[in-house]
Design a protein around this nucleic acid. Structure first.
Lengths: 195, 195
DNA sequence: TGTCAACTTGACACGATGTCAAGTTATCCA
DNA sequence: TGGATAACTTGACATCGTGTCAAGTTGACA
């Protein structure tokens, strides 16, 4: 250990991240091993399965890209609208960073419980962020009448899905900026009173 | 042939449809064969691959559920808004019918070109419907200023995605009615002038 | 009677994941 | 100095699902 500047484990995570983000391939365990410069079996000495490796990679990205700091800003917003905007910027702006891993995680066979759970956890965390923004809006009395907090959360969470980002940014060629601006506009139209 | 009331091919398609719609499983070729009551190999006498079987199943559902008739109504709408609503009803109401197959098609390995193409075709067809509704809105002068027809189409197409339906109806427990109502409301808020 | 289509059984190749066993190499430490 | 240990290597193998191949059966129809 100690020696090679950075540990093999970290190198594996970085390489996996790169391969997934570069997009084109299916990224098999053997591809990752080759890119790291170790044997396929050595991969299994560090990560028990492909699913666990993918999960560890998302955690690695979270720490490198400091997802906590990004979210902290939205938590400290004063008004409901500010919180909504900050959260959209935080999560919407984070999607491109984890998009490669997210695709791989969702492409795992349904039978893979680890992978499914990891993705569900992610989505649940995002949902909590949505719910907090909705609560802040409600507290300000800006939530559209006839909309429960749960419904509003469902909606915001749906609008902010990775798949919607894929459709607009990746498939339709929208810039990240116009994506974020449009989601804000849509969220306001969907959730807030005009007042 | 002729004899067994309905042809084996049709029975295969019906069974595949049922299995996919019932949701729980991975639905392997052997599962389908067993459910039809023939050998796994006989399946390959009728359909060259799993991908082709899935594609044929969507076409089968289209014909049984008469997708053309559903879409015809939206094409004959007089105003842009009417067309928008009719299209949302048509496609949004069709999603539950093909949801099982859609999941299976998207779950196919990326390497499978047939499956990917079939799904892309579907999405392209939906996009055309969206574009037509947007054109009708623009003709009525009801398209929001600062929004190109392409952007409006991108947005409507995104809102009407199968994944958004999954999130609201399947994951969040919305009724089909409230789903359709909400998509209408959102589409109007996103695309139309207040006038 | 013979032919043909629809099917059956059984074996096998392939690609990817994951496992197992046995060997190598470098480092650290007593 | 010599021996344990961690981090790796090579190579073989099991498993699962798809798809292929070959040879046999069955029933209808001409």
């Amino acid at each position: 250990m100690s020696s090679d500047q950075i540990s093999t484990k970290t190198r594996i995570l970085d390489v996996t991240w790169n391969l997934l983000e570069s997009g084109d391939k299916s990224v098999r365990m053997s591809d990752i091993a080759k890119a790291v410069g170790i044997s396929r079996q050595a991969l299994y000495l560090h990560f028990p399965s492909r699913a666990e490796l993918l999960v560890a990679t998302t955690r690695h990205i979270d720490s490198v890209k400091d997802v906590d700091a990004r979210l902290a800003r939205s938590r400290s917003a004063q008004t409901g609208v500010a919180r909504l905007h900050a959260f959209i910027d935080a999560w919407g702006g984070y999607i491109p960073e984890i998009h490669g891993v997210s695709v791989a995680l969702r492409a795992m066979p349904d039978s893979d419980q680890d992978a499914a759970d990891a993705w569900t956890d992610r989505m649940t965390a995002v949902r909590h962020g949505c719910a907090a923004a909705v609560v802040a809006l409600a507290r300000d009395g800006r939530l559209k009448e006839g909309l429960t907090e749960t419904q509003a959360t469902d909606l915001l969470w749906t609008l902010l899905s990775v798949e919607n980002w894929e459709r607009l940014v990746r498939d339709s060629g929208w810039s990240q900026n116009s994506y974020q601006a449009m989601i804000k506009q849509l969220s306001e139209a969907a959730l807030m009173t005009d007042g």
